[in-house]
């Protein structure tokens, strides 16, 4: 749970950066970020998790299972958030930026007051989706021994062999978490919806 929360928060922050580079970055950083992004998105999360734990230690970066898990999911999350934000920004009519410039706003101001609030509204539904995906992806961390719900469930089952009952409980817990995330997302969407 903590892993998911951390990964979603950090991944969102990093993802905003990724999205900005993709839309406004100079050619070289843009291509670099695009390449990493394609790689991450084209790789199963499972492989990404294993790579963060085992491969990084090969090159001398020894992460704990917890750190590796957060790192892998953060990277995964940021790739989704970045792509979503890119889409949302590009979908805004060109006239919005022009109107902002025309009243004398700098690029920074135009982004903060005009583009970002609109892009965030657009990106919100996919962001909620990504958050739910992250919670589900966190189950995979049990393979590297990070302490999370799935690993704990399996440990309990290993002791009492009540597999059906405890997998069912784990399933319900995951469902409740994601259901709450989804409900919260709906609530946010309604809160920021524009009257028309």
């Amino acid at each position: 749970m903590l892993i998911s929360v951390l990964a979603i928060s950090l991944g969102t922050l990093l993802g905003v950066g990724v999205g900005l580079v993709l839309v406004y970055g100079r050619l070289v950083p843009r291509i670099a970020v695009r390449a990493i992004l394609e790689y991450v998105r084209g790789t199963p999360v499972f492989v990404l998790i294993l790579a963060c734990y085992y491969l990084l230690s090969k090159i001398g970066i020894q992460l704990t299972a917890f750190q590796a898990g957060v790192f892998a999911l953060t990277v995964f999350c940021s790739s989704h958030v970045g792509e979503t934000l890119r889409g949302a920004l590009l979908a805004l009519p060109k006239g919005q930026m022009e109107a902002a410039k025309a009243i004398g706003l700098t690029f920074r101001q135009a982004f903060i007051y005009i583009l970002a609030p609109q892009a965030m509204r657009q990106a919100l539904p996919s962001w909620v989706n990504t958050a739910a995906e992250m919670v589900k992806a966190s189950t995979l961390l049990s393979v590297i021994g990070a302490v999370e719900l799935m690993l704990v469930t399996r440990q309990i089952i290993a002791r009492n062999f009540m597999s059906l009952e405890f997998y069912l409980i784990a399933g319900i817990i995951y469902f409740l978490i994601n259901f709450s995330i989804e409900r919260f997302g709906r609530y946010l969407e309604r809160r920021v919806a524009l009257p028309s």
Partner: peptide, 24 residues
């Protein structure tokens, strides 16, 4: 420079064909 351009843009007022009001 961008800041200078922004200042100069404010010397003119532009009205667009598509209005371009900020919807939010």
């Amino acid at each position: 420079k961008e800041v200078e351009v922004a200042r100069q843009r404010a010397m003119t007022g532009m009205v667009f064909q598509q209005f371009n009001l900020f919807p939010h």
